[in-house]
Design a binder for these strands. Structure first.
Lengths: 350, 350
DNA sequence: GTGGCGATTTGGATCGTTCCAAAACGACAG
DNA sequence: CTGTCGTTTTGGAACGATCCAAATCGCCAC
């Protein structure tokens, strides 16, 4: 093995100062682009910085200045494209503002959420963007991050609302309106027997969407049969399996508002196995507009949440909070947009 | 607006020490679980820590100990599920080892790559996991991260190999063998006229895969027609458009090895528009095994790269490097696995 | 030659932790 | 009572930056 270079110490402010005969304070001013330093000195110092390959130690600076240059991002699962896109949007905006993103994921476990939060705050982030794990409790989160930490909640409320954390900002999706719009679209297509398919009632986003569906059905004075509500895991496979439950009694639905795109795609698979063609014999809508929705057969009518834009928005909201810690807490409801494709064809007479 | 609590200073070691009448040094020992401290003192200190809601300041500790507790992860694009899964694997393993992940993404731009690297190293990561942007140069990367920084290259080589960065570790996919295996599979299915579809030759992963294809074709003594190599952007849409180019001359291929899954799915779309049914009239293989591959119609034969496992592996390789900075540089080639589904059906006589 | 003024530069304390050598403590033997 | 030894505890100097009040410089007017 060839011998590595003698692993010399990292070069610091002091080395630069010594290297060109000025004080540490002066070098520090140069680094921060202060107008106080003389043009000529600045040039000399900058040359020396390059020569020695100086790397700024932001941790040391943050310690002294009592500031932070990072933001923690805690999400459920990067493998889920919705969150991956969200994370991409967050990172993009934070990066542009000079912050670095500290990543953590919880796999929907509140215990891991606690552990991850605990580990992240030790690194002194300026704030936290948190998409809570299902069942996460306000009091636990509050006690591990402390009352001073700026927090932005995304996508879900915490359980057991406390007055103490009312000062946290929120960015939520308009789940209810989205599902209502989808249902109204199906009604406008002539459907009268419309199911709500997939998800679990105890998930908050699912119950919000169900509420939107109910709202539209009631507004149109349409009856709802009990077997038109089928719960599933939010996965394609489980959705495909449970397709038959929609047809176990009369009257059979002719359309379904699905909890999300994964479930909708699974349902279309299940329909195909029954010999039904989605968009022709049965109308389907999804929720999320994942990349695949545009390419499925048939292409899926769904609600675009634009998770990347939501990520940018979340980052911006948190940055605004950092600039103005005293401002009132805000709750932002991001609109979702109906994208009509071929899966939601009009009712045909049997 | 209700007045917030008086924004008291963060509680530090000194506060705890004062609070229970011991020295800072003792509290520090307690925090690190040293066996030196008396059982009784420890209990008192721990109680005080809880009481005051102390939060460990890892940045300060790292400064003093000259250590790091973070790793930088620089990838092209979180929106790409391959990288999202990879990042999830990295974060999972780093988190378990007590490290925090600093995220950065480059959008395939070498300039952004420079900027992101520059910003991340200022936060003092212990090492970097880098999936280089296309066209990224070794010398530039080396000069911004410095020669001391442990680096693990994933997925791509850097351009302009320098002897100076030979000490960096590598984790690469076995692109060539993967494409060879796929081609051999199609040959075994009876196909003789096999195209290589999609991607651009100047992408290194694409040229490696093409090389594997060539290797298999030559080993089987099969001829290759010029119009069997169609270049596309690595997207579904462009692939669907260019499908026809495969058939612009005789003899038409009966099968295609595709650059990746996106391209393969696009090709299947294009084939459907020509009235050809993938898996029946024409065989198709992909590369990556994205989630969608298992659910397409027909399900796609492809090569599983298991990006999440690769992420875990990358993290482990870098952690090993941190434990042993002197070890020889390693190059790991991760195997890819052929997953046979229905899109690669046997040749039928016309 | 002295004083004054704006433009630059600087020493030393400080942020919150860890390291280290040395001190304090208690128990026990001589 | 003194000395020794093992167990605990501790003061003060780091780590690499920034802040601040004060010092230094050059230049010009008087």
């Amino acid at each position: 093995m060839e011998s590595l270079p003698p692993a010399r110490r990292k070069v610091t402010l002091t080395d630069i100062a010594a290297g060109c005969g000025v004080s540490r304070a002066t070098v520090s001013l140069v680094l921060r682009g202060s107008p106080l330093v003389n043009k000529h000195t600045r040039a000399r110092v900058e040359e020396e910085l390059r020569r020695q390959g100086y790397i700024y130690n932001r941790a040391a600076a943050n310690l002294r200045r009592r500031t932070s240059s990072s933001i923690a991002l805690v999400i459920n699962e990067l493998g889920n494209p919705f969150f991956a896109e969200f994370a991409a949007g967050v990172d993009e905006t934070l990066g542009a503002a000079g912050f670095v993103t500290l990543l953590g994921s919880t796999s929907e476990s509140t215990d891991r959420e606690q552990a991850v939060l605990g580990s992240l705050i030790e690194h002194g982030p300026g704030g936290i963007i948190l998409s809570p794990a299902e069942g996460s409790e306000a009091s636990r989160v509050l006690s591990t991050v402390g009352p001073q930490m700026p927090v932005l909640l995304f996508n879900r409320e915490l359980g057991g609302s406390l007055p103490e954390y009312a000062h946290w900002d929120r960015l939520m999706l308009d789940n209810q309106r989205g599902a209502r719009v989808a249902t109204e679209h199906l009604i406008a297509q002539g459907h009268r027997h419309i199911a709500f398919f997939g998800g679990h009632n105890d998930s908050s986003s699912c119950s919000q969407r169900y509420a939107g569906y109910l709202q539209a059905m009631q507004a149109a004075d349409l009856p709802i049969a009990e077997h038109w509500r089928v719960q599933t895991a939010p996965t394609r496979v489980d959705a495909a399996h449970r397709c038959n439950e929609l047809f176990r009694a009369d009257p059979a639905p002719t359309a379904a508002v699905c909890y999300n795109d994964a479930v909708a795609l699974g349902l279309m698979l299940g329909l195909a196995q029954r010999g039904l063609q989605a968009g022709h014999d049965f109308a389907v809508t999804g929720f999320d507009d994942i990349a695949e929705a545009a390419f499925s057969m048939p292409p899926l009518t769904t609600l675009a949440t634009n998770p990347r834009a939501r990520g940018r928005q979340a980052a911006q909201l948190l940055l605004a909070r950092l600039r103005n810690p005293q401002a009132d807490a805000s709750t932002t409801t991001a609109p979702v947009q109906l994208v009509v494709r071929e899966s939601s064809g009009p009712l045909r007479s049997p």
